[in-house]
């Protein structure tokens, strides 16, 4: 297992091996997102209370799920970068932060557009909305710190520490609707209970979630490969690639 870890931690090995994943992820995200959009926006039924507005769910929920799990992935990469000083982990943190920020912004924006017709307001300072806004600021903070001071090593460490500390916000987001009185409703999906919606609704939702993940890994991989080449531009393997 350690050998595997070290191999993939090498920028050269990672760059050459990960290239094969790009077309797979690209095809998967186009197909799954395409089918999910058609299924969710055209075929899935309207809601008995919310009518057609419920379709915002097919973008809002995947964005919110991805926002939180991409943060968790960034924090794990930051932890690896702090402890093992793996260069590739630091590049992973740097390249995932803007994607995470965008996805969080998408969750906030779609939630706001959903809130107006249903709740009667675009924004309210309840615990779920506020903690998600903090998630956005955390992404933005990590991004800003990482790119501060001419991309130095110490900037990378500071960004990583912030990313790891920010992990504490994830349980707050998750349980905010249970711990406090909020305007946002509790979760529709739990590990122990059946989904609070029929298959005709959670089917397309699940498809959109998978599609969002495929797109996310594609975007991350493209950015990470680009960043690795940029950082290693003086090494032999990059110079060889340029010559070819």
């Amino acid at each position: 297992m350690w050998r595997w870890f070290h191999q993939w931690g090498s920028p050269k090995f990672f760059y050459h091996r990960s290239g094969a994943l790009l077309p797979v992820l690209a095809l998967a995200s186009v197909l799954i997102l395409g089918c999910g959009v058609v299924w969710g926006l055209l075929i899935a039924p309207a809601d008995y209370q919310q009518g057609e507005s419920v379709r915002i769910m097919y973008v809002h929920v995947p964005a919110a799920i991805l926002a939180q799990s991409s943060y968790a992935m960034m924090a794990i990469m930051a932890l690896i970068s702090l402890i093992w000083r793996l260069k590739i982990a630091d590049a992973a943190v740097q390249t995932v932060a803007p994607i995470g920020a965008c996805v969080t912004l998408l969750a906030l924006a779609t939630g706001s557009l959903w809130g107006k017709p249903m709740w009667g307001t675009y924004w309210v300072w309840d615990a779920r909305l506020t903690s998600t806004l903090i998630l956005f600021f955390l992404f933005a903070g990590v991004l800003a710190l990482r790119n501060a001071a001419g991309q130095s090593q110490s900037a990378g460490r500071a960004a990583s520490v912030l990313a790891v500390i920010g992990l504490l916000n994830l349980p707050i987001i998750k349980y905010s609707v249970d711990w406090w009185f909020t305007l946002h409703q509790p979760a529709s999906f739990t590990l122990t209970e059946r989904p609070a919606m029929p298959f005709s609704m959670w089917g397309p939702l699940l498809m959109m979630v998978v599609g969002f993940y495929a797109w996310f890994f594609l975007a991350w991989l493209i950015r990470l490969r680009h960043e690795l080449v940029k950082r290693e531009v003086r090494t032999d393997w990059v110079q060889q690639m340029i010559k070819q």
């Binding site: 809601d47 008995y48 709740w119 009667g120 509790p186 609070a196 919606m197 029929p198 609704m201």
Partner: peptide
């Protein structure tokens, strides 16, 4: 001065609700 509506976490098609 302002009334906001809360809704629960359950979703279903109108026919099922009827």
């Amino acid at each position: 001065e302002e009334i906001l509506a809360k809704h629960d976490e359950k979703y279903m098609p109108p026919e099922v609700a009827m």
